[in-house]
Computed example of a mutant assay.
Amino acid sequence: MALAEVRGSARGAQRRRHTDVEIHIREVQFSDGYVPLRSGEIDVLLCSRPVEEPDLTVGPVLVREPHALVVSARHPFARRACVRLDDLARDTVLRSPRSLPDDWDAHHVPARTPDGRLVGRGEDGGDRPGAHCPGRRRTWRLPRIRPRCRLLRPPDVAYVPLGDAPPYEWGFVWRPPVESARLKAFHQAALTHVGGEPDGGWGVP
C-alpha cells in the first residue's frame, strides 16, 4: 500500500466529516528531520521508524515497505537481482543526513554485517536519491518505494532490492500539545484505511 494512498484516504475522510477544516499536505525534506514538527510548521508528520524522541508521540505502523540499495548504474551491484546485508561490507555506505538521530541511522545501516564485518560509512547522502552515486562506487541504502523510484530516479542510478533487510515502517508522529479531536479523527481514518481497528484513541500502545 502506497504512502500517498494512506495520506489521501485520511485527508478525504477528514474533509467529509469536518467540512470546515482545511488540510494542507506538505513535503518535508529528509534532511529536515523533526524540525518542521517541533517548530509548529506542521501538526503531524508521516515518517519512518524508529522514532525515539521523548517529546513526540508515535502512532502505530501504517505502512511497511521493502528496502533497496541505491547505487550507480555502473556499480557491479546494479547488475544483480538482489543484494544482502553482508554485501554492505564490500563498499562504502553513505550516511543518513546528520540532522537525523544516530539511533535512526544505526537501525537502518548496521555497524556490522550479519557475518561480523565492519560496514564502511561515507559522507552525508543528502536528500536526493542517488545524488552522490553516478560515476562512483559508493552505495547508499534507502527505502524502496516503487512509484517514487520511477518518478525520482536519475538516469545513472539503480535500485537493487536488499533482500534480508527488515522493512521500512511508516506512521504518524506528532507533538502532544497539538492533540485534538480533529487530529485524532485524521489519525483514525488512516488507521481504518490500512485495516486497523479504530480504538477511540490514538492507537498508541
Rank of each mutant, 00 (worst) to 15 (best):
S39Q: 10
L46M: 07
V178P: 01
V58C: 09
D105S: 14
P147G: 02
V157A: 06
V71G: 02
S180L: 09
F186V: 03
W140V: 07
H108V: 02
V61H: 01
Q14G: 14
R144S: 08
P114G: 00
G201S: 12
R38Q: 02
A189R: 04
R26C: 11
H193E: 10
V83G: 04
R112V: 04
P50T: 00
P101E: 08
G171F: 06
V93N: 08
G171W: 02
G125C: 15
L191F: 11
W104K: 09
E27Y: 14
V61C: 06
A131C: 13
A131W: 04
S9V: 12
R80N: 04
A158T: 07
V6I: 08
E65K: 05
P205K: 04
V157R: 01
E197A: 15
C47I: 06
F186E: 05
K184L: 14
V109F: 00
V204Y: 02
I145C: 10
P54R: 10
L46K: 02
A13V: 09
V21G: 14
D124G: 07
P114R: 01
E27Q: 14
P114L: 04
A185W: 01
R153K: 13
P166E: 11
E197G: 08
E52T: 15
D105C: 11
R98M: 09
R95V: 08
P134I: 00
A2L: 12
